[in-house]
Design a protein around this nucleic acid. Structure first.
Lengths: 192, 192
DNA sequence: CTCGTTTCCGCACGACTGTACGACTACAGG
DNA sequence: CCTGTAGTCGTACAGTCGTGCGGAAACGAG
């Protein structure tokens, strides 16, 4: 067998390129040619592993799911329940450049999934990861994971993520952590 | 003077067309030709009042600001403070088709504004409307509109709006109202 | 009616899109 | 060394994009 391609590494590189294109130029600029250029490949070469434009979109969102659950799983095992809840929720917020990238792709493709049926199930997979973390965080923080509680925390987390991206490109992120801390405290007090 | 065009009516029609295109085909499909077709105009005619594609985007988001504050202002004047808070917050959620349209455009263009500098200030105007309503609702509900409180409620509202669009295209919306009611109750109790 | 302005729109251009195809290259196996 | 295949990529094509331009059409004023 001749020349072998590390398909995993290639996929990762292309997905990273797609993420960067979305972050820098927006979802409308997610074209085969631009992604290829960002990845340093000829468009025709990109097509060898990503046969269509849809494949780029789909693998881009699938990668978000994976990265997300991967980062949650990588949290230190020796945390108290309270500390785990806090750390896990903060992993869902765009508090550094890497997470900003993920969240921007997550939200941009979430909006795109509204009008792209092939994207919807893949995006909902990522959405489920977030929701599961919210559920576990409620329990860990000492609350009861009722439907209303989960709906509430989940909405709050995604809303915070959105606002961190949209309103605080440069400013600090302390306010979002304050909101999360306040939420955790009220969960622990079981007052909500 | 010859033939006079009702520019206000024309603008409204085109903006409605643009909203529908965004809702049905997504932000990537917001092209001059498609909007013109949706409005029943020739592309060249559309260009008479909307000279560029950017003008379509910009007027589309500006119209969201206006519609939003207009609907808030149109709330019955004889409501108790509590009832006003509830009604105002529910106006910010996509609980019927009209509001779904508005919210989808609001969020889609919010993501687009991340990479479109000419859109950013116009979108932030709409964002400010929402935030102001949140602030007033906190006061009306009996809470103190501290920075953390406003950040929290604002994030919660936008998160709920997003989830209503993305996860509950067809299902009921009761759960979102339950979340809002619970929020109002905890504000009234001043426990947060 | 005629006239003049406003509005409409067909056509064209260059740029960019997704994708198909076939030639080319580089390398593992022999 | 040679050979065949996995991988690369240039080229091409049809479609769509935004936008400029210039003429046709409609209608109020006289």
């Amino acid at each position: 067998m001749p020349r072998v391609l590390d398909t995993a590494a290639r996929d990762a590189a292309v997905i990273q390129a797609a993420w960067h294109v979305i972050a820098r130029e927006g979802i409308t600029a997610l074209t085969v040619r631009r992604v290829a250029a960002q990845a340093g490949l000829a468009p025709s070469s990109l097509r060898y592993t990503f046969p269509t434009q849809a494949a780029v979109r789909e693998k881009a969102i699938t990668a978000v799911s994976q990265r997300l659950s991967q980062r949650i799983a990588a949290l230190p095992a020796d945390l108290t329940a309270q500390a785990w809840a806090r750390a896990a929720l903060l992993e869902l917020l765009p508090l550094d450049q890497q997470r900003s990238l993920e969240m921007e792709v997550f939200l941009a493709l979430g909006m795109a999934a509204l009008t792209d049926d092939s994207l919807q199930p893949l995006w909902q997979q990522a959405d489920t990861v977030v929701r599961d973390v919210c559920t576990k965080a409620i329990t860990a923080a000492g609350g009861e994971p009722t439907a209303v509680q989960v709906d509430r925390l989940h909405a709050l987390i995604d809303g915070l993520a959105f606002h961190l991206l949209v309103r605080d490109r440069t400013r600090g992120h302390d306010w979002a952590q304050h909101v999360v801390d306040r939420e955790l405290r009220s969960l622990a007090a079981r007052r909500l």
